[in-house]
């Protein structure tokens, strides 16, 4: 289960869902696995505003991953300046390629420069870093949800429903 998933998960119990204590669920005894995924720069850019940055920092800390900066990167930090920018010497240009073709998404699409290391790092943390085995613990009720073979199970025992 990729870390991005945890951004959209909380405890399944009714009494916990509305509390801030239940989010994010805290990994315990987590066994990580890096699963390579195709880099989709526009996907990362689009999803970033929906990521609870503080929670993601906490998770990275819990998992012993490299520390994230205190604030989420600005959109401008995700792409190197456009190659058409005359202030850049032409021998330093990196062709932006055509990632994200078929998005058909209005003006400006495809105008981005090459993805920066910042964007690649985000891709690595959010999509390629996965929890293969372990538990996800609710900070409100303490219930632990199991992750097995990369699949988290949120079915509650009947006495907790």
């Amino acid at each position: 289960m990729k870390l991005l998933t945890l951004n959209f998960l909380t405890c399944a119990r009714k009494a916990c869902k509305s509390t801030t204590l239940a989010f994010p669920l805290r990994p315990k005894d987590a066994e990580l696995e890096i699963v390579e995924a195709d880099l989709e720069p526009l996907f990362i850019r689009n999803i970033l505003p929906r990521v609870e940055w503080e929670a993601l920092r906490t998770l990275c800390q819990d998992l012993g991953l490299p520390q994230l900066p205190p604030a989420a990167p600005e959109p401008a930090a995700l792409f190197a300046p456009n190659p058409s920018d005359p202030s850049i010497p032409s021998d330093k240009l990196v062709r932006p390629g055509k990632e994200g073709e078929g998005e058909g998404e209005g003006e400006g699409e495809g105008e981005e420069g090459a993805p920066t290391q910042t964007l690649k790092d985000l891709h690595h943390v959010l999509l390629e870093t996965t929890i293969r085995e372990g538990k996800l613990v609710c900070g409100n009720c303490g219930h632990a949800y199991a992750v097995k073979e990369g699949i988290a199970n949120f079915l509650l025992p009947s006495h907790l429903v």
């Binding site: 998960l9 699949i151 199970n153 949120f154 509650l156």
Partner: peptide, 27 residues
């Protein structure tokens, strides 16, 4: 679980096991 495992192969999405009557998502 068996269906969620099959669904989990679709990038960039995610799949989990959960009950429709107790969804584990923020409101």
């Amino acid at each position: 679980t068996n269906l969620a495992k099959i669904a989990a192969s679709h990038q960039p999405h995610s799949a989990i096991v959960a009950d429709n009557l107790a969804l584990p998502h923020p409101l």
